[in-house]
Design a protein around this nucleic acid. Sequence first.
RNA 1: GCCUUCGUAGCUCAGCGGUAGAGCGGCGCUUUCGUAAAGCGUAGGUCGCCGGUUCGAAUCCGGCCGAAGGCUCCA
Length: 622
Amino acid sequence: MPSAAMPGTPPARTLAFETASPSARGGRTVPEPIDEHVDLASLPKEERLARMRHSAAHVLAEAMLDLMPEAELGIGPPIETGFYYDFRLPRPLTQEDLVWLEERMRRSVAACHPFRMERITRQEALERWKNQPFKLDLLKDLADGEITQVTHNGFTDLCKGGHVNHTGEIGPFKLTSIAGAYWRGDEKNPMLQRVYGILFETEEELAEYERQLEEARRRDHRRIGRELGIFALFDEVGPGHVVWLPAGATIRRELERWIVDLEVERGYQHVVTPPVAKLELYQRSGHWQHYQDAMYPVMERENERYVLRPMNCPHHILIFASQQRSYRELPLRIAELGTMHRWEKSGELTGMSRVRIMTLNDAHIFCAGPEQVEQEAEGVLRLMEEVYATLGLRDYYYRLSLGERGSPKFVDNPAMWDAGESLLRRVLEKLGLPFVEAPGEAAFYGPKIDVQFKTAAGKDETLVTIQVDFHLPNQFELEYIGEDGQPHRPIIVHRGVLSTMERMVALLIEQYEGNFPLWLAPTQAVVVPIADRHVEYARQVAAKLRAARLRVTVDERNERMNAKIRDAQLQKVPYILVVGDREVQAGTAALRVRGGGDLGAMPVDAIVERLRSERDARALVP
RNA sequence: GCCUUCGUAGCUCAGCGGUAGAGCGGCGCUUUCGUAAAGCGUAGGUCGCCGGUUCGAAUCCGGCCGAAGGCUCCA
């Protein structure tokens, strides 16, 4: 963060400055004080919050040294909702420690200790931080002359600045959790203990954020998925191996039928290929060399080695290569609901959204050249926009993931990268889709467009990608015959739209909070007979709905009508049809909408019509 | 995979050295009801698994399995 210090201007006198009294320390050079006074009110809110959060991290470290003087300090930056500080400690932190630390922080905040910043020489810094190995590690990256430290209430931290004037300006906060984190985010480094805190400008905003967290817990697909019978995970089946229950299988089937129809309309050719292949296939594609760690172990029988496929591309490439291709056939769009297996590390699995066996709405488009790639990328983006609009998804954004020239992580072919990146950028701009650029996030073989969305828990996840691939066509020496009668190498566009069925359904559960629109709802209507004598009529009503291919059940349990209605509401069934004496008499049903109320009696045929048109329109309500 | 926490009935959870409990749910009976929970009765648990300490372990210790929150990773 840039310092607010302006050398030469008369400092706006602050408490911090007046109390600053750098000691001469026996004739050695005196650290040079820096006036970092800021007028908080004049700053953009974002920066004001960042300063508060970062300052709170300092106070946390101060408190920690009070609790454990031997604590080794890592870093303590502001983050999206608060701050954290990493420590290496002689023992694991407990919940009680958190309470103590928070109380100790509040005392420091109440005392309005000024923050004082000063510049020190490398020599001074090495001496000052000789017992703090992580600070020494940080010093390695700092040039002499840019080393600064910040002190408040007798606690000094190596720090580049960005504070409030005194601890009293720190907003309301809470310490929330303890977590492990590798030093500098590298798993080869030691694991530190990270204390997280949340901090906002006002008590109201803090309370609002906590309310949002509560809300997120309510939307959690793992909870709703169990309550609505959508999926289950069994220890015996294995972690990350999703079992789709009837309700979930219904949702998935609807999504699959829909997307396959959309794709076929757009010239995709759907195929079905086996989820197992010989190891050699993946050696040739390069996956074995690059992604072995993420693959299930090899199976061996009769001197042949097989793997569960982590990706579908090689299979589709074989289909392309299985006959001589003419430029007239391109772009050739091969699509599949392809099941893939990836050995995600055990700690990375989450419910249905991060799993080990998944089915991707996958396709590989074999293109004749950059112009076709551009056209196809545009077609994919248009399809995405249509699909996400139908599903009511709004909270996503596009990310253009770029390579890094000269980095060993990426294929060395600058011309290819330039071409690929600029064409993807051009397509996004042409369609007027806002996007962010992310250097270094590309696939090793080419740039890509990622569709990013936020989970209920607030984490960013990649839904799908559009990738430009110049690499696999080389590995497999793909060719088509051009207009000139000569062989040419195609370019492959890898793309998904619905993502994996697992991740998409997890996302939709959270998006709808389990209230699936009619066309996706596992049970679309429940008929509730008021008394036993209405059961026969209820069955007739259900039969009429079923004849229109609506998914309907009759609640014949020996329960009161109120209980049946309540249970159907809790199961988030879109429509409830109540039938009693009056309805039997009139040939009607009393219709009740999920989340709404009693719409009154109407002819059964009218209800069938209403539901049918709502379903066929894929309406988002109810 | 790493750090921390957690694992008791189908679900939510209490019990935390003396031999297992509640609510909801299930099942049975009664009730036949007009828009979000009828009443009564009853069954159900090797307290995640394996080992150790102890006269005695759901409870303490160790290992393993699984889950959660982070970190790392995410083709």
